[in-house]
Amino acid sequence: MNICIFCSANSNLPTEYFDRTRELGAWMGANGHTLVFGGCNLGMMECVAEAVHNAKGMTVGVVPSIVEKGGKVSEHVDVKILCDNLSDRKDLMIQRSDVIIALPGGVGTLDEIFTVLAAASIGYHNKRVILYNIGGFWNSLIAMLDDLKAHGVLRAGFDDTLKVAQSLDEIAGFIG
């Protein structure tokens, strides 16, 4: 399965985030899953790519030209796909993936998550997004989405598209 990972490129994050990311990457590689990610050599992006690579898995990095020009491409990218900008990156990552897992991340990760969810809500695809709720990171987002649901502004089927996992075992269960 091609698993897209959206996550932070920051390094100054809690150790737990990196430990769980490394565990996820090792599981992906050991189970023959391919990582599709932003191709960057920073933060959690580099962590998951290294873990997949070390577990003999395949990695596909979708790399914007600004990242390549800046010398920030991960050495753990097996297949490099160059693109012009972040919009192209998102589109290519989504196209090449069967499922998306969102690890802790900032506004870029939120943008990526909501792009996938919005497209699914109007029928462009039926790909699932799994929020990996490491250390309760996504709790406030989950509460906001529950509030939107209570206000009736989320379409039917939203709960089938977005799942929340507290552990690697739950992720494995969602992926099937």
Results as ranks from 00 to 15, higher is better:
N2W: 02
C4I: 02
I5P: 04
F6N: 11
C7R: 11
C7W: 10
A9V: 12
N10R: 15
S11C: 00
S11H: 12
P14W: 11
P14C: 09
Y17Q: 10
Y17C: 00
F18T: 07
T21W: 07
L24K: 04
A26W: 00
W27F: 08
G29S: 07
A30P: 05
N31H: 15
N31D: 10
G32Y: 08
H33E: 07
G38E: 01
G38S: 01
N41P: 03
L42S: 11
M45F: 09
M45D: 12
C47W: 04
C47E: 15
V48Y: 02
A51P: 09
A51W: 06
H53W: 13
K56N: 14
G57S: 10
M58L: 12
T59D: 00
P64F: 06
P64M: 10
V67K: 03
E68A: 15
G71S: 05
K72D: 04
E75H: 06
D78A: 07
V79T: 15
K80M: 14
I81Q: 10
I81A: 01
I81D: 01
N85Y: 09
N85G: 05
N85E: 02
S87V: 11
K90R: 11
L92P: 01
I94F: 08
Q95K: 14
S97I: 03
S97E: 03
S97R: 02
S97T: 07
V99L: 05
I100V: 14
G105E: 11
T109N: 13
L110S: 10
L110N: 14
F114W: 14
T115H: 12
V116G: 02
L117I: 15
L117R: 13
A119D: 13
A120Y: 03
S121F: 08
I122C: 06
Y124K: 11
Y124G: 01
Y124E: 06
N126R: 11
N126E: 12
K127C: 04
R128L: 02
Y132R: 07
G135E: 14
G135R: 14
G136K: 12
F137G: 02
S140M: 07
L141Q: 11
L141R: 08
M144P: 03
M144N: 06
D146M: 08
D146G: 03
D147V: 00
D147N: 11
D147M: 14
V153Y: 06
L154C: 04
L154S: 04
R155P: 04
R155V: 08
G157A: 05
G157H: 05
G157C: 04
D159W: 00
D160M: 02
K163H: 11
K163W: 04
K163D: 02
L168E: 06
D169L: 08
I175E: 05
I175T: 09
G176M: 08
